[in-house]
């Protein structure tokens, strides 16, 4: 076997392995179990509880270990930005939901990342 053929074979093997290692991006979608679990858990919380930052964080972290971050922004009289929980993670799907209150312009925005 000459050197050219050998390099060609190596290249094919390398490309194949990189292809296989990256192919999870195509396979993992929004229907993955962690996304579904978190989605259901957030819905359950929203239907059954008034929003409370501390209890929400405890509840959601108990429901899923795939939470990348939770950011809560309250808007009452003055705007407050709070990052509650964050871990290093690149591949995630973001949930955003608002909790509107009685009164002019009062709301809480929750942004949450779930690892994919």
């Amino acid at each position: 076997m000459n050197l050219g053929r050998f390099m060609e074979a190596c290249l094919i093997v390398v490309v194949f392995f990189i292809f296989a290692s990256l192919s999870f991006i195509m396979i993992r979608a929004l229907s993955n179990p962690s996304y579904q679990t978190v989605e259901r858990a957030v819905t359950f919380y929203m239907l059954n509880h008034p929003f409370d930052e501390k209890s929400f964080k405890e509840f959601i972290l108990k429901c899923s270990s795939e939470i990348a971050f939770i950011k809560v922004k309250h808007l009452y009289d003055a705007e407050v930005d709070i990052t509650v929980y964050e871990t290093e993670c690149y591949n995630y799907v973001t949930f955003r939901f608002v909790w509107i209150y009685y009164g002019v312009g009062n709301y809480t925005l929750v942004v949450m990342g779930v690892r994919t």
Binding site: A29, L30, E39, R40, V42, T43, M46, L47, Y90, N91, Y92, V93, T94, F95, F97, V98, W99, I100, G113
Partner: peptide, 19 residues
Amino acid sequence: PEPKVYIKRDWIQQAQLVQ
């Protein structure tokens, strides 16, 4: 990180309407 090819609408949107 958010896939933009398709808009995900599920229970969370509906739960916001409940509130």
